[in-house]
Design a protein around this nucleic acid. Structure first.
Length: 264
DNA sequence: ATCCCGGTTG
DNA sequence: CAACCGGGAT
């Protein structure tokens, strides 16, 4: 059999015909129009046709982080907390230490404040992180019998665990199809579609509606799709000087067409 | 929906 | 000195 392994990137070998069965194109068009996307039907169609390229790019260029090699909800959840407003490379340096020191919610619950502060120190946001982790240990131990909750709502109970971290856990650990919205994601989608992003995209219901519609409703493809957009934003479609020449979806990119007309 | 916060690192 | 796989408070 050629059954593709799910980790680290999910399913990256997909045809655009398959994708069209898994994407709510009608809804995506409706939502895209709200963001002022020009020539909407064609733009969405072009984007979907480029997704296979995007997923192939991920297979070759995607970042391999340890939290992408597991579907253990605890390890994924901890990683998402550490990754809040923080570079992946910085988290990678301390990640194994965190997992070793806090292999379970109970272990975290037993840890001292100084112990927690020390291990996350290099990430910054030390006060945030300390309080969050303390609450995670206490709440998961006392209210959930040491288990990792299996709903967005419950995952958000500890202070400073919001939609992004909770959704990311359900997506990467439980395979629930849904879109993530972070700064990278918003920038990439905004540029490609020519969608006018609000100032805080991760709080916009419209943005979630658009991205949830665009996200393929298959566990392994949702995974690859989200990781691909994330890594594209971090490695190629960077904030100030995007490297459009090496972008796998420039053929469908509204921003790229603009820069070609102005530039060089 | 808007404003503010956070702290190490490259 | 901005940036970083956001979130709380108002």
């Amino acid at each position: 059999m050629t059954e593709q392994s799910s980790l680290p990137f999910g399913k990256t070998d997909v045809t655009s015909e398959e994708l069209k069965q898994l994407i709510d194109t009608e809804e995506a068009i409706i939502q895209a129009k709200k963001g002022g996307v020009k020539d909407t039907e064609q733009q969405i169609s072009d984007f979907i046709n480029c997704i296979p390229n995007l997923l192939n790019w991920l297979e070759d260029h995607g970042r391999r982080y340890p939290w992408r090699e597991t579907e253990d909800p605890w390890k994924v959840y901890l990683a998402e907390i550490l990754l809040q407003r923080t570079r992946g490379d910085a988290v990678e340096k301390i990640y194994s230490d965190v997992i070793q020191q806090f292999p379970t919610p109970e272990a975290l619950n037993q840890a001292s404040e100084e112990e927690i502060r020390e291990v996350v120190h290099s990430l910054g946001f030390v006060n945030h992180r300390q309080r969050t982790l303390e609450e995670v240990g206490r709440i998961f131990t006392q209210e959930f019998n040491g288990e990792i909750p299996n709903s967005i709502e419950d995952l958000k109970k500890p202070w400073r665990v919001g939609d992004y971290s909770a959704r990311a856990t359900q997506l990467f650990a439980r395979g629930e199809p849904m879109a993530l919205v972070d700064s990278n994601f918003a920038r990439v989608i905004g540029r490609v579609l020519g969608y006018e992003m609000p100032q805080q995209p991760h709080k916009s219901d419209d943005v979630y509606a658009l991205l949830d519609a665009l996200t393929p409703t298959d566990s392994d493809i949702t995974r690859s799709f989200n990781l691909a957009v994330l890594d594209l934003g971090a490695l190629v479609c960077t904030p100030d000087s995007p490297n459009c020449e090496s972008c796998p979806i420039s053929a469908a990119c509204h921003y790229y067409r603009l820069t070609r007309m102005e530039g060089d």
